[in-house]
Amino acid sequence: MKEKVGRALKAYPIQFQPEMKERVWGGRALEKFGFQLPEGVIGEGWMIGDHPNGTTKALNGEFAGLGLDEIREQHGSTLFGTKGFSAKTGRFPLLIKLLDCEDDLSVQVHPNDHYEHLAVGELGKTEMWYILDAKPGAKIIYGMKEGVTRDSLAQAIAENRIMDCLEEVEVKAGDSFYIPAGTVHALGAGVLVAEIQQNSDTTYRLYDYNRPGLDGKLRELHIEDSLNVIAYEGSGSTRMTTDMKDAGTWLTLAESPFFTVEKGLVGPKWELSTTLESFTILVVAEGTGKLTWADGDLALKPGDCFLLPANLGSYALEGSMTVIRSYLP
Rank of each mutant, 00 (worst) to 15 (best):
M1R: 05
K2E: 15
R7T: 14
L9T: 09
K21A: 10
G26A: 13
G26K: 11
G27R: 11
F35P: 05
I48Y: 02
G54F: 13
K57E: 15
F63N: 00
L66R: 07
G67M: 12
I71L: 09
S77C: 05
L79V: 12
F85C: 02
A87D: 14
K88G: 00
L94H: 03
L98K: 06
L99G: 07
D100K: 05
C101T: 09
D104S: 10
P111K: 15
N112D: 12
N112W: 03
H114C: 14
H117L: 13
L123P: 00
G124M: 09
K125G: 06
M128H: 04
W129M: 03
Y130I: 03
D133S: 09
A134Q: 00
K135V: 05
Y142I: 10
Y142P: 00
T149F: 10
R150A: 11
D151F: 11
S152H: 04
S152T: 13
A154W: 00
A158Y: 05
R161L: 04
E170V: 10
A173R: 03
A173C: 02
D175Q: 01
F177S: 00
I179C: 09
P180E: 06
P180Y: 11
A181H: 12
A186Q: 05
L187F: 13
A189P: 07
V193Q: 00
E195H: 12
Q197V: 09
Y204R: 10
Y209R: 05
L218V: 03
L218Q: 11
E224T: 09
L227S: 10
V229E: 09
R239V: 06
M240F: 03
M240K: 13
D243L: 14
D243C: 07
M244L: 15
G248N: 08
T260A: 12
V266P: 08
K269Y: 02
W270K: 09
E271P: 01
S273R: 11
T274G: 08
T274R: 05
T275E: 09
F279D: 01
V283M: 08
T288I: 11
G289V: 10
T292G: 06
T292W: 03
G296C: 13
L298S: 02
P302Y: 12
G303N: 15
L312S: 05
L312P: 02
E318T: 10
G319T: 12
T322S: 14
I324S: 00
S326W: 01
